[in-house]
Nucleic acid binder design. Structure first.
Lengths: 213, 213, 213, 213
DNA sequence: GATGAATGAGTGTTCATTCAT
DNA sequence: TATGAATGAACACTCATTCAT
């Protein structure tokens, strides 16, 4: 929701501001991010900033919107009709696109992480009220479809499973990349496979029927 | 590491300060937590605070130490010798104790969550240097033992599985409780069972051997 | 090194701030000087100060720089080529310019004195690193030249003599002026002559050769 | 002027406090010296301090008094009747005793220096009001006597010469020792001789009569 | 539309001193 | 006599935002 003035800016200047903001908000969570530093890094006047954006939160919303837009762009074409896909393929693709996004846009990914980290819960709620239902609900829907199709076991707790998936997908950007060879996309994708594998079949060595009581 | 003066305080006053601190640090991550607000809430002079604690970080460390102490108290007695236990029972107990802790000490649990949220990574590192090895490593060890005993499949990626467990256990306190009927311990424990179930056997409806390529 | 914002200020306001700073730092050595008092005396907001200067040290450096600039302006034209001059004439001119500077800029002179007082040694070093070699070394060079030319006795300890001169020149501004009729420049200059006289011929009534053992 | 309670203290405790105070005040000038640090270093209660001393200034006065007492103890016996001595011998002895004092009591010497540095002028005046006339006046008297006896030239400005001597003697402790091989007393004493030499005969290579106009 | 000076409340921290016990 | 908890003003510095030009 930047003001028109921002969009009327010459492309180059707009970009400069955008990147200064990216730098600041990817390093600091919302409250600690400093508009002072942003305007200094961007080389614009303090007053100018407030002509482009309502306030600090307005800038933040703008960045978050960018995250959403860009993240969607990383979805593969076949995901346009997600429910034609096999459930696990869909999850795999979501995870893979998440990894690719984080790899190509590490700063945006950091911002996303701060936002999700619920140290920012109040900021999050204020900003996300219009985006309600995002997040866990999507995974629940996917799993429900999978269950209907018979891909997913009928006896699991869907909420828990969706919670599972949500937690994992949120962790993909930062901790995951830090930990698992962040430079090499091929390796990261193998780790995604490992994840899916565990998700599908669990980690127990025993079959379900012989163990389940 | 509060100063002696803090421990010499009359129980009641110490408690007041402790709770003011709890309130502040459970709502705000370290950097945003305000000593000003703490002293105002506690009804003490600014100078007094600094007679009890070295500085802001000192207070924080104290709270974190409380978390560790209390969390340990929630471990069941049979977990004193953890490696005599079945791997999944151990994980189950860790999760259950985590839930019980979070239910009884929701503010401490929030603080723990902030600390783990890696928006606070630098604060975390500074404070945790002496507690190295905590975290993911523990889960990896558990899984390794489980693999040796034959409880855990030999073909999974241990790092990923440990990462899995770590993410889940961190999520137990806050999101988990918000989502799953936080008032009712029995229900929460059932959700833990659901989690373990999924963790063990996965969510796929198909057996491993027929699916694996 | 004030920021541009300081130099962009209307002359009058800049002057007000400058004088408030002068007052504060001429009365108190660096560590004890209070930015709070400066801004109050200058009638500006605390935040404004930090828009003009990086920090307290930045203001201090600015004042010190003023001292250097102004002090140079008090050197007489013939001192542009100092080593064409007779050694004692040079010293005399240095002392005289020091006195004139202190008379016209008593507050700057006080600041200079604090800076030299080596109660401030650490502050001094931090600020003066770029101005290395100032101070005693200059006097040593002057004396060396004088010795080469035969104006200065060959048997004196140059380091001690330079130390002598340095101490005296530092003392010119404050103690000296307090003591010797500070209002009357002519009288002060006579005292400088007295000083040079003693410096040249000593205070003993006896000749060197009959006394020296 | 410490209170009786201080003198009633067991020797050892009194000494501990004295040394803690020495450490603090030799490092920091009066205003920056911290009673907090002193009591902590001395291991006594905050309240106790104020039972031994009126306030911070009282402690300071005590230390300054120590300086005077100790400095007198460094005067050689023949200086008990100073005016029987040759004027230059007297000055030499004063300087030598100053150097010995600074070498044996470096912390007291530092305190003296802070006190003299006239960054502390207000503190100085408050504390020294009862000691008026110390300092320069002594040197003036010595020089007057020397002039009467014919040791000192009759045509010099006594005030300036006394000022000279005063500046030099104040510089002996710190700058002097830093600069001139502070460890080796013999060397330091040679430097004192160099000083006296210059003081007596000046640094000019020419005789007085041929140069004087 | 662009500017950047102005603001005052906020931050964590230190201080000398008092006083009830 | 010894204690040490209590205090509140002071410190340097940062902040998001406003507004006259």
């Amino acid at each position: 929701m930047p003001k028109d003035t921002f969009y009327n800016l010459p492309e180059e200047k707009r970009q400069t501001i955008y990147e200064a903001a990216l730098d600041e908000f990817s390093i600091h969570p919302f409250k600690q991010a400093s508009i002072n530093r942003v305007v200094e890094a961007a080389g614009i006047a303090k007053g100018s900033f407030y002509q482009y954006f309502q306030d600090k939160k307005d800038l933040y919303k703008f960045l978050v919107e960018e995250i959403f837009q860009k993240k969607i762009a990383y979805l593969t074409p076949e995901m346009q009709n997600p429910f034609n896909m096999d459930c696990f393929s869909l999850i795999r693709e979501l995870f893979r696109s998440g990894v690719r996004f984080a790899k190509d846009n590490p700063k945006l990914a950091k911002i996303a992480q701060h936002l999700m980290s619920n140290s920012e819960k109040d900021t999050y709620l204020e900003i996300m009220e219009e985006k309600k239902g995002e997040g866990i609900q999507i995974y629940k829907m996917i799993l429900e479809k999978g269950m209907e199709k018979g891909d997913v076991r009928g006896d699991i707790n869907l909420d828990i499973a969706a919670f599972f998936l949500f937690q994992l997908s949120n962790s993909l950007s930062d901790g995951f990349m830090d930990m698992f060879h962040q430079g090499d996309e091929a390796q990261l994708m193998e780790r995604v496979e490992d994840m899916i594998e565990i998700l599908k079949y669990g980690i127990s060595n025993n079959r379900l029927e012989s163990e389940n009581e």
